[in-house]
């Protein structure tokens, strides 16, 4: 089963709606609670990254009994130094985003921590695609 969504850049009113919809689907399908929690955290962080850094993008969520694969594709600025971006506390968020309480530098580190597999395809000036895999019975919180 596949669902696709649009995330709107710098729109802090809609921000979180896509991860909310994905959570509702996960609960309706009956995935285990611990997996839903990890999916909630990772999708929310990935969605917020798109809102804050990439002027939005597209989300494709594929659901199967074995795993949920979430692809977040944007045409934003790309990540210049992936190692830095994966460090807790490091952020390039704008002043506006920080004033709204975002930009804590925990986005990618949390996505890595709570996912069972993470692939990051990024190119400066072209965009970033995150592929997040979450499995029932995967890593524990």
């Amino acid at each position: 089963m596949v669902r696709e969504y649009t995330v709107y850049g710098n729109d802090f009113v809609r921000a979180g709606e896509v991860s909310g919809k994905i959570k509702t689907i996960l609960k309706g399908l009956g995935y285990p609670p611990e997996m839903i929690r990890r999916a909630a955290i990772t999708t929310y962080e990935a969605e917020m990254n798109m809102v804050i850094h990439a002027d939005g993008g597209r989300v494709r969520a594929s659901f199967s009994p074995e795993e949920v694969v979430l692809v977040f594709a944007d045409q934003g600025p790309g990540i210049a130094d992936l190692n830095l971006a994966m460090q807790a506390g490091w952020s390039t968020a704008s002043e506006t985003a920080r004033q709204l309480g975002f930009g804590g530098g925990m986005g990618l580190p949390n996505i890595r921590r709570y996912s069972d597999a993470l692939d990051i395809d990024t190119k400066v000036g072209t965009g970033t695609t995150l592929t997040i895999t979450i499995r029932p019975g995967g890593r524990n919180l």
Binding site: M1, G28, L29, G30, F63, P65
Partner: peptide
């Protein structure tokens, strides 16, 4: 809230 015990059928 679960639509079915079986994930494939729930989908």
């Amino acid at each position: 809230l679960r639509l079915d015990e079986d994930l494939s059928r729930a989908m």
